[in-house]
Amino acid sequence: MLRRLLPHPLLTPALALIWLLLVNRFTLGHIVLGLFLSWLIPLFTLRFWPEAVRIQRPLTLMRFIAVVLYDIVVANLIVARRILGRPEALRPAFVSVPLDLKSDLAISLLANTICLTPGTLSARLAQDRTHLLVHGLHVPDPAQLVADIKQRYEAPLKEVFEC
């Protein structure tokens, strides 16, 4: 019964929060309206969401988000220095990262994370989903880059979404 009424328990609070941010007023009336809308919208868009998202370890997810935010700031400074330096000194490379992840959501989150952290860019997912092609702005050591990505980003994602 609860599953029928609330097909996506995580989508509802997220939508309510987005509604509150959109109207930019945090009054009781808007909270009620936001909750009502965020209850209705998942019901009407049920067919768009084939699989329900299950998060296994919220704490690991929080730590992952913190690590990514920190990496974005630090690596931005590094990329800024590379851009301001001599372009001839850059050694860009394509690196193929083997994937342990299976679920679509985890793979797309990994690809997005790689794109967000500066210096790396996910370019293509192999058809059989075993490899992700990554382009690095300055890669002196490809093996190190692969190890970094697997240990820093892939391991926590695997823990959170697949177990």
Binding site: I72, N76, V79, I83, P87, P118, L121, A123
Partner: peptide
């Protein structure tokens, strides 16, 4: 970075990151 770097893939790095930050 977009104006200065020398091939498309390296150019892609500049704006998508520095700009978001």
């Amino acid at each position: 970075g977009l104006a200065r770097l020398r091939d498309f893939y390296t150019r892609l790095h500049g704006p998508t990151k520095a700009t978001t930050l």
